[in-house]
Nucleic acid binder design. Structure first.
Lengths: 135, 135
DNA sequence: TTAGGTGTATTAAGTGATATAATACACTTA
DNA sequence: TAAGTGTATTATATCACTTAATACACCTAA
């Protein structure tokens, strides 16, 4: 699949998952990682839809979820903007991470794996170090 | 939701996910954790369908996937049995765990979390210890 | 004031995954 | 032979997802 750049946002869209979900995840990621700055203007619904060759309603769905998450704010007639509140980003990131981690731990438990099993695998595969990043 | 016991298998089925997927996951888990023994007979397609109040085709779909995974074997006219090969179970468990872990690490990376962030959260929440289990 | 860009809402339609239902067939065991 | 296996087929229904075509209220800049 091909990557697409729209403003400061990068997208890789395929058909493995719902389109609105991929848009949602990738914008979330960009905000969480600071690839798009606090207060920055997002692409308009119509523009992003056109760039990604997707229906405006599909982009809308992703944008509405982003606002519910507190990651964006809308200004009538002006557009959609990334929240200016670092706390909003931080708390959302924490909550989502917790959700992912809990779900992951349930999966591991269902396979009968211990925490040490997981650590072994990860440290071996990702070569994690004290204080290092994951890559 | 209510739990159901069918032979040595426990099920909790709800409507949060596809039915065949829940059946699949829960049988996998039972095999991986040894809750149902190697070589044991599984409930028949019709019996399990009746117990879970689900269509036989839905159980069939889960059973076919289990066989593709190498976790079960079918004997014509006799029924479906858990594989007698510990290696099959072990290799499947390893492969599935790797898939889960990789997907999880991608999620964490998308939120900009480091391996240490994850460790801190888990050790705090699950109170993991050296050599201990996850619960 | 006007023109064009915002987000939003509505209605209609199509597709695919999921699930149910009813039925039939080949095979094995007792 | 009878009953229990897995399997296959056909039809139907529902729901999530997506597209399409419009329309409306709001804001900004010319």
């Amino acid at each position: 699949m091909e990557d697409q750049q729209v403003g400061s946002l990068r997208f890789h869209i395929d058909f493995s998952q719902p389109l609105y979900e991929q848009i949602l995840d990738q914008v979330r990621s960009a905000i969480a990682k600071g690839e798009i700055g606090l207060g920055d203007k997002m692409p308009s619904v119509r523009e992003l839809a056109q760039e990604l060759r997707v229906n405006p309603n599909t982009v809308m769905r992703a944008y509405q979820e982003l606002e519910r998450d507190g990651l964006t704010e809308k200004r009538r007639g002006q557009g959609t903007f990334v929240t200016s509140s670092p706390e909003h980003v931080r708390s959302f990131r924490t909550a989502l991470a917790a959700k992912y981690i809990d779900s992951f731990m349930d999966q591991m438990e269902s396979l009968g794996l211990t925490w040490n099993d997981i650590q072994s695998y990860i440290e071996q595969k990702y070569d994690a170090e004290e204080g290092g990043s994951m890559r």
